[in-house]
Design a protein around this nucleic acid. Structure first.
Lengths: 230, 230
DNA sequence: GCTAAAATTTAGCCTGCTCTAAATTGGATT
DNA sequence: AATCCAATTTAGAGCAGGCTAAATTTTAGC
């Protein structure tokens, strides 16, 4: 992801995320995510295994896993990243679909002191602008439910829990149509790959059509009964 | 200064500052300031001269100078640094004597967009917490007067214009005694190296003694007639 | 002007991390 | 069981930028 060489923290974040989301972090997947060759990944994994204490374990055919020490580094980095994203939105007026790259660079240089001051200023928030949980000071993660929009039944009334921040173009599209965390939608129907949605905007139903790539980035949960009591 | 290898921006900032403050940026002085060996400086200077466009010129016995292109990079970096320092103080509640290191790391990764949003949030400020001028969007520097405290006559009533942020221990000491930009002092006397000052704190005169290292970090100007109208 | 000291550059090496290309390994198919 | 393909690792090299030690150049003192 970084246009410069990925740092140790980037590797650990990627291993942590891949192991969570796909069950395994293989050399090839890591290489794809980090924008380097598989050979480079092998080299770095060796280094991270040799670190004292070791930051990753290599399960022969099962890919890499972070050790507790490695997980700590990953979670610290994720905490910084998500706090920074929220900070950029709340304090500096960024749009939620344009904070990712800035946070990606800042997360490597922000001190623990600054991280905690930002958290304090924001009121120790539990979720970032994309709806992702922010590890707290002890690095504990708030629980999240939510399933991919693509798996929702036609007719279901849903609330957007989170959106993936991997692809800037997809994020822009989501912001454009108003599919942001908290938004309430109904699945109106489906055609080959496309999803027909009915999106509640200020109490009015707005029709929205999104393709598979965009749908894959949206995680939802059943909408609560009353959306806005007033 | 950075504990990691100094970046191109660090080199250019250092050349710019040294050329300003000492008239010349020699290999040895640069090496001392940047925490590398003179040989490493030679290598980097070569690289910066070869850059397209060239960022530095090497005046044979006169040390290095930044080119207009190099000066732009230096001023952009200085602008980011000083805005960040003020931001840390004003928004995140840092003390003015502890912002330097954090800004030193952040200045390399903050985008132009973020820089300008910070400037806007702070009201396009002209001076940082140490009293140093902040280049504006066009990179123009507000003029500053001010001379070293050590050169002030005994008996003179002075106002602190700026303090050097090079040495953390010195800065802490200055913060401790209240010698901050804007403070009004009278030079009560001198003994071998030490300066005896009378510092106005909330209308009351407070005696303060500082050594040569601390005095060297303070720049002053004649105090205006009325300090605080009310 | 000559010599000693200081400053600077050159030469050669090392580390960290990348890459390509070639080997290897494991699993899947027939 | 033999083979093939995909995944992975190894081998070897490059680049950036640091370092030390040795050479060179300047400056300064006499």
């Amino acid at each position: 992801m970084p246009e410069t060489s990925p740092s140790v923290q980037d590797y650990l974040k990627a291993i942590y995320h891949l192991a969570r989301r796909e069950g395994r972090a293989t050399t090839t997947r890591l290489a794809a995510v980090l924008g380097v060759t598989p050979a480079s990944v092998t080299g770095m994994l060796k280094r991270l295994m040799a670190e004292q204490p070791p930051l990753v374990v290599y399960h022969p055919r099962r890919g890499a896993t972070v050790t507790p020490a490695g997980e700590r580094v990953a979670l610290e980095t994720i905490r910084r990243h998500r706090l920074l994203e929220l900070f950029l939105v709340r304090v500096l007026g960024y749009r939620w679909d344009e904070v990712h790259e800035e946070a990606e660079r800042l997360e490597h240089v922000v001190s623990e002191q600054m991280t905690n001051r930002i958290a304090q200023l924001l009121g120790e928030p539990a979720f970032d602008p994309h709806g992702h949980p922010i590890p707290d000071r002890k690095l504990a993660l708030p629980a999240v439910q939510g399933f991919p929009l693509a798996q929702a039944e036609v007719g279901a009334r849903l609330q957007v829990v989170s959106v993936s921040d991997g692809d800037a173009a997809v994020l822009r599209r989501l912001a454009e149509v108003g599919l942001q965390p908290g938004a309430v939608v109904r699945v109106a129907g489906r055609t080959a790959g496309d999803h027909l949605l009915s999106l509640a905007i200020r109490g009015r139903a707005q029709p929205v059509v999104i393709g598979p790539a965009v749908a894959a980035a949206v995680f939802v949960a059943p909408a609560p009964e009353m959306t806005e009591p007033a």
